[in-house]
């Protein structure tokens, strides 16, 4: 790619908007996973009894099991959500910007 292309991309207002949109999205997703995981850890550190609470009267399964499995599933789902959006929407926008600038 020529310096000219880089210059055109750099000066394209769509590129700046694209980068900041995706960065905001990355940061928000990171914060969600951060809060979910450290929330879980802090809950364990400060309120063990809550996680040991039974799901049903007379039952054995504690509330900690679905919460723990929930963190695992959330991790997987959030990763796919990000990848799905990046591979469709973001890549399409990036391609459009490149195409505009290459001509």
């Amino acid at each position: 790619m020529s310096q000219e292309t880089y210059k055109r991309i750099r000066e394209n207002p769509k590129f700046q908007a694209f980068v900041s949109k995706r960065n905001v999205y990355s940061v928000i997703m990171s914060i969600v996973i951060f809060v979910a995981y450290y929330g879980f850890i802090v809950l364990i550190a400060f309120d063990k009894a809550f996680l040991a609470t039974k799901l049903s009267v007379g039952g054995v399964t504690s509330i900690g099991i679905p919460i723990g499995l929930g963190v695992i599933l959330l991790t997987i789902i959030l990763t796919w959500v990000y990848v799905w959006r990046a591979n469709s929407e973001f890549d399409a926008e990036a391609d459009a910007i490149i195409k505009e600038s290459v001509q």
Binding site: S26, V27, M29, S30, I33, F34, Y37, F40, I41, I44, L51, S62, G64, I65, G68, L69, V71, I72, T75, L78, T79, Y82, V83, A86
Partner: peptide, 24 residues
Amino acid sequence: GFDGLIFSIGWLVGWPVLTFLLAE
């Protein structure tokens, strides 16, 4: 028991961070 679940979750949460911030 449950402690094992806590431990394993720690080994998983690095992956989304890597995806969101660095992979591509």
